[in-house]
Simulated scan of single mutants.
Amino acid sequence: MRLSRRQVLECVAALSIAVSVPTFASAAEEFKMGLLVPGSVAEEGWNKIAYDALKQVEKELGAKISYVELSDNPAAFEKAFRDYASHGYQVVLGHGFQFQDAALTTAEDFPDTVFLVSSSYIHEGNVIGLNTDASQPFYLMGVIAASLGKGSGLIGGMEIPPIAHAFDGFERGAKSVNPDFPVSKVFINSFTDASAAKEAAVSMIARGADFVVPNANAAGLGVIQAAQEAGEKASTFSVYSEYTDVAPKNILGTFLADYGRGIVRIVSDIKNGNVPQSNVDFGLKDKDVIKFTLNDEAAKSIPQDLRKHLEEVTAKIVSGEIQTRAQ
């Protein structure tokens, strides 16, 4: 049978679409997911969030799972990605922006594996970013801090996009209340050094910050401890983990990301052949993923009028009326 030029072009287009999306051999094939974390899953905070998500995938999707704990070594990241992909893992999650480059390099050789990267806005072929938009709950923290305090200090693990976006959200929230509200920032270049985070927070409190806020994974516990030891001089927020029992009077609110719910949703789609066609951005609209709650036992109570304002601000963030970070 001879095909017309138009029919040939249609066939070529169909083939181009077919090869651009990873496919899995059959429904009977064992579905496997691997996880790379920059540290220990036993630590409360960022790494445990990913591990709990992996366990939910195992339980709800019947997947075979595996994980590897790594130090900050890009060569080790790429090797781990390659090991999983070469053993037929259909999905591999690198839990952190620092895994992005290794995922992009590895993905070129393994087009049938989907590489997910946490805290990333990437979408190139079979590399897909999963971002929990922390700028949105941080915007609410900024509103609270500027409404109740005189100045804030933000302590970040590293100056990478997801943390910069979160801090941008905090500053925007604070400035929406008081354009002159002072906000200082420091990055300790570590996600595990709680002592360095605590030292930075203590220094900020000494310089007049009555709110100190962490975004440093496990190291953030040092900020909570600094606030607790400062007593009435400092307030803070629990970020990614529930630390209220450490400083029940100093923590005004808690931001938790039930990353597992979002991961199960995305990985379930991938298992069914529906690979996301853009990066995935979880926000306050995803009530099953992002939760921001207030601590009623805090020494610095949040008045009802401020609570009502926070509800109104949340609605505007969800609708898109308020932009919490630079686009």
Rank of each mutant, 00 (worst) to 15 (best):
E78I: 15
Y51G: 09
K59Q: 15
S71L: 13
L61I: 06
F77G: 03
L70K: 00
V68H: 07
E78S: 11
Y51H: 13
S66R: 13
A63I: 04
F77I: 12
E60H: 11
A80F: 06
Q90D: 08
E78M: 09
K55L: 13
R82P: 10
V91L: 07
G62F: 09
F81S: 05
E69T: 06
F81G: 03
L54W: 01
H95T: 06
F77C: 07
L93H: 04
V68C: 07
P74I: 09
S66A: 14
V57K: 02
K59W: 13
S71N: 14
Y67I: 10
A75M: 10
D83S: 14
Y51F: 12
A80E: 02
H95C: 08
K79H: 14
A76F: 09
K55G: 02
P74G: 05
H87I: 06
G94W: 01
I65M: 00
N73P: 01
S71K: 15
I65G: 01
F81D: 02
D52W: 11
Y67R: 08
K59C: 12
V57M: 10
S86W: 10
L93V: 06
L93K: 02
E58R: 10
E69R: 02
K55N: 12
H87D: 13
P74E: 03
V68S: 10
A75V: 12
S71G: 14
E60V: 00
L61P: 02
V91Q: 02
Y89R: 04
K79S: 15
E69V: 03
Q56P: 08
L93F: 03
D72T: 15
Y89I: 11
K55P: 03
L93R: 01
Y84S: 10
A76S: 11
D72M: 14
G88C: 04
G62N: 13
K79E: 15
L93P: 03
H87M: 13
I65Q: 00
D83M: 13
R82D: 14
E58S: 12
L61Y: 04
A63R: 00
A53K: 01
F81N: 02
H87F: 12
S86R: 08
F77T: 06
K59E: 15
G94A: 07
Y67F: 13
P74Y: 06
H95K: 05
F81A: 06
G88H: 01
F77S: 05
D83V: 15
G94H: 08
G94V: 03
S66L: 12
H95V: 04
N73G: 08
D83Y: 11
K59A: 15
V92G: 00
V91F: 04
K55F: 02
F77E: 04
Y84D: 07
